Simulated assay, not measured.
Amino acid sequence: MYRIVFLLLSSLFIFSCADKKIDSIELPYYNEPDFTPMFIKNKLEVNQKIKHIIADFSFLNQDSIFINQKRIEGKIHVANFIFTTCGSICPVMTRNMKIVSDSLVSNKDLVFLSFSVTPWIDNPKILKKYKELNNIKNKNWEFLTGTKSAIYKLARQSYFAEEDIGFSKDSTEFLHTEHFILVDKAKRIRGIYNGTLTLEMQQLIDDIKTLEKED
């Protein structure tokens, strides 16, 4: 009798620990510009509650090839917003993004998108040189340029690039953010990270691996 009770209690303990382990690796969804996390397990509930996805886009990359939303469909991607003449946070962000890129370079279903916030300066030729100067070999890392209005709209309305302001900020105001945004295979935002902090890159790497396990 005692043995049966012990086995039952042990089983409950194991299942309880397993549940906690599962809970610890699940990532939230972000549906609003204030980045309030929403933890949802049921997929039907996700479809009902999470309506925000990254909008369609089309921009030129560093090789003068048009890149659109098909590039990220069914793939995890990480986005950030930089400009090549930036002398403050952008070089740090690029180095930190490279840490993630180099760590996961074998993952062909992972895409990195770096959008220029000074597209009137950063043409494809300049972006290609910038990629080469930073010794970026990953073919799945695109540096993108286009019209200012299109990039800024995508940044603020789709990626919530300035989470304290969201898309309420005037489109003429300069966009400058240190954030990296993690997006899942269904184009839903799943994480935000400070791209100037090297310590946060390991968390980003871990979170990407977590998303890889999702169906």
Score class of each variant (00 low, 15 high):
Ile4Gly: 00
Leu9Phe: 14
Leu9Ile: 15
Ser10Ala: 15
Leu12His: 03
Phe13Val: 15
Phe15Leu: 14
Ser16Ala: 11
Cys17His: 07
Cys17Gln: 14
Ser24Arg: 01
Ser24Asp: 10
Ile25Ala: 00
Pro28Tyr: 05
Tyr29Leu: 11
Pro33Trp: 04
Thr36Trp: 00
Thr36Met: 05
Phe39Tyr: 14
Leu44Ala: 12
Val46Gln: 08
Gln48Pro: 02
Lys49Ser: 10
Lys51Val: 11
Ile53Phe: 02
Asn61Phe: 08
Asp63Glu: 07
Ile65Gln: 12
Ile67Gly: 05
Lys70Ser: 14
Arg71Cys: 09
Glu73Leu: 11
Glu73Asp: 15
Ile76Pro: 03
His77Phe: 15
Val78Asp: 08
Ala79His: 08
Phe81Lys: 11
Ile82Glu: 10
Gly87Asp: 11
Gly87Phe: 04
Gly87Glu: 11
Thr94Gly: 04
Arg95Asp: 07
Asn96Arg: 09
Lys98Phe: 02
Ser101Phe: 05
Leu104Thr: 01
Asn107Phe: 06
Lys108Ile: 06
Phe112Met: 10
Ser114Met: 08
Ser114Ile: 01
Ser114Phe: 05
Val117Arg: 02
Val117Gly: 01
Asp122Ala: 02
Asn123Trp: 00
Pro124His: 00
Ile126Lys: 04
Lys129Tyr: 07
Lys131Val: 12
Glu132Asp: 14
Lys137Met: 08
Asn138Ala: 06
Lys139Ala: 07
Glu142His: 14
Leu144Ser: 03
Lys148Gly: 03
Tyr152Cys: 05
Ala155Thr: 07
Ala155Asn: 10
Ala155Val: 05
Ser158Trp: 00
Phe160Ile: 12
Ser168Gln: 11
Lys169Pro: 00
Ser171Asp: 14
His176Phe: 05
Ile181Phe: 02
Leu182Phe: 02
Val183Asp: 08
Ala186Thr: 15
Ala186Trp: 00
Lys187Ser: 12
Gly191Ile: 04
Ile192Arg: 15
Asn194Gln: 09
Asn194Cys: 00
Leu197His: 06
Leu197Tyr: 06
Leu197Asn: 12
Thr198Ser: 07
Leu199Ile: 15
Met201Val: 03
Leu204Cys: 04
Glu212Thr: 04
Lys213Ala: 07
Asp215Ser: 03
